[in-house]
Design a protein around this nucleic acid. Structure first.
Lengths: 216, 216
DNA sequence: CCAAAAGTGTTGGTTTTACACCCATGG
DNA sequence: CCATGGGTGTAAAACCAACACTTTTGG
């Protein structure tokens, strides 16, 4: 920090925020991609992102980009990692702060109609992405899997009221493995994150499951 | 990513790397601080840091800054978190990518003589720091504690050959609690990270402990 | 009363913790 | 042969996973 602070002395360098917006839809963990409308990588899928404003914090930039795509909402949003390889963008030096966001499938689905550029890709069938976005998605999936059982992160993928079965489905989709029902049930209840509402699931055939909610 | 890429269009914005270099010295987890030689916060302690070069990756910048302070070495180095509040630096907009580094106490001690600006502060007695560096240090300590038992991170604080007692001392200093000896011993051996060398500690009174090393 | 899924009790195995003990060395 | 810390055996406790069973609903 011994350098001077003459603004003109700084080489052109930009900071962006890229968003790994994930959801669990029809049993699969999926990520939101946006087809690029211009060079480089025109027509190739990439993560949604944008420049950080001069008077905007990194978190605020991530929230703004999320709102652009999915109509704000109260998504889970957390900083993931920063990528700054000098060659990651062919045009100029761009450092990107990657964020990852989680949204229930229905809320995300509501934002998709009329947006031909947006697409939801299952994690096992992601096309080749622009820039280093493949690596960013890998980081996000690893982080999500790693935090799943010590953090109440999965609830961000469910509606406010949910059954334990639905919670287990989300966990299984994220981890890609089957889980034991009684063990899962007890683990979740023991963690103290959720409480029963006394209400029951409606509309199903067979015995209705109790609806739970996250404790406040 | 729909903006243009005219370099002149970018507001002055800088990217720095700040380093939380930690070690365990005489039973305490400590962090390396540098007294600032100029405004703002002149004379106040801050984390060592520097600007990211135009053709330099973030990791390379962190390595360079580490080498400036501690004579490169093979320290553990990992990206921590990025801080970009618009008001975090009064002079201009600076986004910083924080890294944390671990070094054995003796290697770090070798770099201190003759550097009046550098100081090693125990984690429980850190002076008020410049900018938002307090928050950065908090992040680093939390990360270190969290990773301690699922990652071979503690070995970066020990010499190549070490006793199990020394390893336990490092864990206790980081966590700030006492650990049970037999349980700790077995946990460490079960993880499969280390192996005995057959050699014994020299110079001590009483029974000499076996020296272990990290498996390759 | 049957099918299907919700929810629970019980068992058995694994892991972790704590305590006590034995071992090795220098003085 | 004593003091001290290194190292290990054992038993109690806690934890976890699997299975089987009971419960509840719609048809």
């Amino acid at each position: 920090m011994s350098e001077t602070y003459d603004p003109a002395a700084f080489p052109p360098l930009a900071v962006t925020v890229d968003l790994v917006l994930m959801t669990v839809a029809s049993g699969d963990l999926a990520v939101l991609l946006q087809r690029r409308g211009e060079a480089p990588h025109k027509g190739v899928h990439a993560l949604p992102g944008g420049f950080v404003g001069v008077a905007e914090s990194l978190d605020d930039a991530a929230k703004r980009i999320l709102a652009d795509k999915a109509g704000l909402s109260d998504a889970w949003l957390e900083q993931l990692y920063s990528f700054g390889d000098p060659a990651r963008d062919p045009r100029m030096r761009i450092v990107t702060i990657a964020y990852f966001a989680l949204l229930p499938a229905d809320e995300l689905a509501a934002a998709l109609p009329g947006r031909d550029d947006l697409m939801l890709a299952p994690i096992d069938a992601i096309p080749k992405l622009a820039f280093d976005h493949d690596a960013i998605v890998d980081h996000a999936v690893t982080r999500l899997r790693g935090k799943l059982d010590y953090s109440p992160i999965a609830f961000a993928l469910l509606p406010q009221r949910f059954t334990l079965r639905a919670l287990q489905d989300v966990h299984e989709a994220i981890l890609g493995i089957q889980l034991n029902k009684p063990a899962f049930r007890r683990r979740m209840l023991d963690k103290g994150w959720i409480e029963g509402t006394g209400e029951r699931e409606a509309g199903g055939a067979f015995r209705p499951a109790e609806l739970f909610r996250v404790k406040s």
